[in-house]
Design a protein around this nucleic acid. Sequence first.
DNA 1: CCGAGATGGACAACCAGGTTGTCGAGTAAG
DNA 2: CTTACTCGACAACCTGGTTGTCCATCTCGG
Lengths: 167, 167
Amino acid sequence: MSRRKIYTDRMPSRSGADLALLLLGSYRNLVDEVVRELARRGFPDVRPSHEYALQAIQAGADNASALGRSLSITKQAAAKTIAALTERDYVTTTASPVDARRKQVQITEHGLALMREGAAIFDEVRARWEQRLGPGELARLEAQLAQFVAVSPIRLDAPGWAAQELG
Amino acid sequence: MSRRKIYTDRMPSRSGADLALLLLGSYRNLVDEVVRELARRGFPDVRPSHEYALQAIQAGADNASALGRSLSITKQAAAKTIAALTERDYVTTTASPVDARRKQVQITEHGLALMREGAAIFDEVRARWEQRLGPGELARLEAQLAQFVAVSPIRLDAPGWAAQELG
DNA sequence: CCGAGATGGACAACCAGGTTGTCGAGTAAG
DNA sequence: CTTACTCGACAACCTGGTTGTCCATCTCGG
């Protein structure tokens, strides 16, 4: 606590707050690049949250309530998201044949194309990072980060906080 | 692309999207812990953005316009932030003696106490991470992340996207 | 077979943290 | 003195959430 010197190669030259900014900044850089590239490839108005929602839908959350649970947001918010996705023709909804309350969400071809492109771009950027760090280093970094997201069993499927606007 | 095996110890078992979630999740875990602990220590209604704003103010952005520039938000938004900080008694504003347009922002003793506690907790959590990873590993991780935030000279002083609610 | 309770979706009101646009007052430079 | 810029304030709006209420529908126990 009392600021005595530490025998590491670096002082605590980076404060805890800096660490937070590093994590956030890296995330932003990564996601921004993906969104930018997605725009360039014909998906101009995608938000990160759209991708997360589509993934959840594809994973089986095919109605507003389920999507809300999957994303840890209220079903009303999930319904809004579905509306936004519908507007952009990434999903369509049809009445469920089995349950008249449900409105079943389907991903359109356009939505599937978005998901494909998104995943590809993500992987491209990741590959560039890997190249930059050197072989094995990115996997190491990921393994280390994984320790911290695993500490509390955070629902990573729940990014409301990931749905931010770009700068 | 075609999913052929790669000669690393791990497959690209982690996709680019996973990497994003790891970064975001780590950030969230870190910040959530700090905010939670801050609440426990008598600052119940702090948001991450408050800390960032206070730091910018301390660094010299002592009026709404300057704070806005420093945080890369509009001065109107900055004024709202200052209002929020004032409400919570973290800052006070007085008329500038030198320029009658300016309203000079000062950090109160309570605000300074918050900043001290915040920094201390951040460093505590960072120390715990360091312990978890082993000596030198955290510095290494930070250095690696720094490469990616440095790529584009991102204004890390600009977290609007950092101002998210807790879960 | 029926009724109670859970579930799905919709609507309305609200909030936080941003945005734009406009404005008047104050300052600085010609 | 005039002109251009800056500061802060106000109003209206957007996004992505929230709560609370409501009705239609399903499910299950008796």
